[in-house]
Write a protein that binds this DNA or RNA. Structure first.
Lengths: 244, 244
DNA sequence: CGTATATTTGAAAGCTGTCAACACTTGTGG
DNA sequence: CCACAAGTGTTGACAGCTTTCAAATATACG
């Protein structure tokens, strides 16, 4: 197994060969899902956990008035529903936006494994902490960044996250998202999303194909967004936790 | 130790007597902090973890332009910096808004303890999952709720969270927050925050003392906010995880 | 080819931020 | 006890951002 998840964990310089074995054994079976499938559904009991080996998904909540808010994008190397089995029902829906390859395993197996491989447990905790930081940055975006900065910020975040999982070393990145999806992630109307979109396009920072977005000129985008990459830590685990 | 944290964990019906002993032993010493003190500071290495035994704090990030966004409120029973020791530096600042009583312990002690008491580890994971849900709900608020609903939603959330930790059974709740704090949490200007504030006050849903807010008529506030309490789970841990 | 899904535009209405003052409270030092 | 400073709360007016409405164009898919 040389998944994006493992790639990402390797950069932690924490895990040893035996840990990777444990990680491998976790996965009971592989799942291929088509675009637009619901992997986790709001309100339902969720007993399985997924490693994203390939593909993109969005995690969102639906409001009574029918609006929805995308809470996070899910990329190769991410884990879907790590905490979900601890709760009676899922709070959000996770839906694929392209076809995906998932590693599937039941929650109780995780609990066992984690006990036998404390370093792996730590790596999972690290991943959970990383996800928390991403959510917090999204809160900052929605609360205090103008819509153009917000959009630029999201683009750069996605690009950086892809890189951290070993995808993309290019200067141009293709994101499989359309304007509706974007507006639900940015908390904007789709019409306003389109306007801002045009702005960035006019300055040749982005380009569009139907249902896809191409990022050019990532450094200008990043400075436009005041992007501070520190919340996406490439290599880490402080000394304290290397003790194991 | 009969802290709000333990109170909250008890409702999980997961921990046994021995686990509480472990939890007790975690705490190396108690800390009393004055209002306005920084418990965790953005950019600094963070090696300690804190249990909030009493008091309130806010967790926020500061932007280049000086603006700040409060990411979450921290209440009795919450844990400050659970994942922080896994990273090179803290991403946010945690600042007390009233005087607080904290249980302090070093990260490596947590790692040991967690290995010896897997049920406690599970309880911590549950707490992390609960925090994640709260962040996600905040994202939904900022992205898709009108400012009045957003404010009402925040108030009800704080009330519910206090109740879940054993605080407050009253129909009126006093929150130690002022309008500036509120505006930084809601992602609004302080002037607009004040306007919305007046709205709710006019309808006698809230009342004010300097630097404090009193909630009356919680049920009307909740329906105004379309508050769906399901993301704050009082008792849970699905069957799968009770195996231990 | 027709339907459903996206994208695009313009105009008007509504919400929210900024500006500029002013009032009130609290705590400090004289 | 008063004056003053700093922080917080209050108001009205206006500008600017964003949504909503309505309608026209693509584009994808069976």
């Amino acid at each position: 197994m040389q998944s994006p998840f493992v790639y990402r964990l390797k950069s932690l310089e924490l895990l040893k060969a035996e840990d990777f074995e444990f990680a491998e054994n976790l996965i009971a079976n592989l799942d291929v899902v088509d675009p637009g499938m619901r992997i986790i559904e709001e309100g339902r009991l969720q007993k399985k956990i997924f490693f994203v080996l390939d593909g993109w998904a969005v995690k969102y909540k639906t409001l009574k008035d029918g609006n929805r808010q995308i809470v996070n994008f899910i990329l190769p190397g991410d884990i879907i529903g790590l905490f979900a089995p601890l709760f009676q029902h899922a709070e959000h829906t996770v839906e694929s936006i392209v076809s995906m390859k998932l590693g599937v395993f039941p929650a109780d197996k995780l609990i066992e494994t984690v006990q036998d491989a404390p370093r792996l447990a730590l790596a999972l905790a690290w991943k959970a902490g990383q996800d928390e930081r991403i959510l917090e940055e999204q809160i900052v975006s929605l609360g205090r960044r103008s819509s153009a900065k917000r959009m630029a910020h999201l683009f750069i975040e996605l690009y950086r996250r892809l890189r951290l999982s070993g995808y993309t070393r290019e200067q141009a990145v293709i994101l499989p998202v359309n304007q509706l999806l974007l507006s639900d992630a940015l908390g904007l109307s789709h019409i306003h999303t389109h306007r801002i979109f045009r702005e960035l396009e006019k300055h040749e920072l982005i380009e569009r194909l139907p249902g896809r977005i191409i990022l050019h000129n990532l450094s200008i985008l990043a400075s436009l967004a005041d992007f501070d990459e520190s919340y996406l830590e490439p290599i880490s685990l402080s000394k304290a936790s290397r003790a194991l």
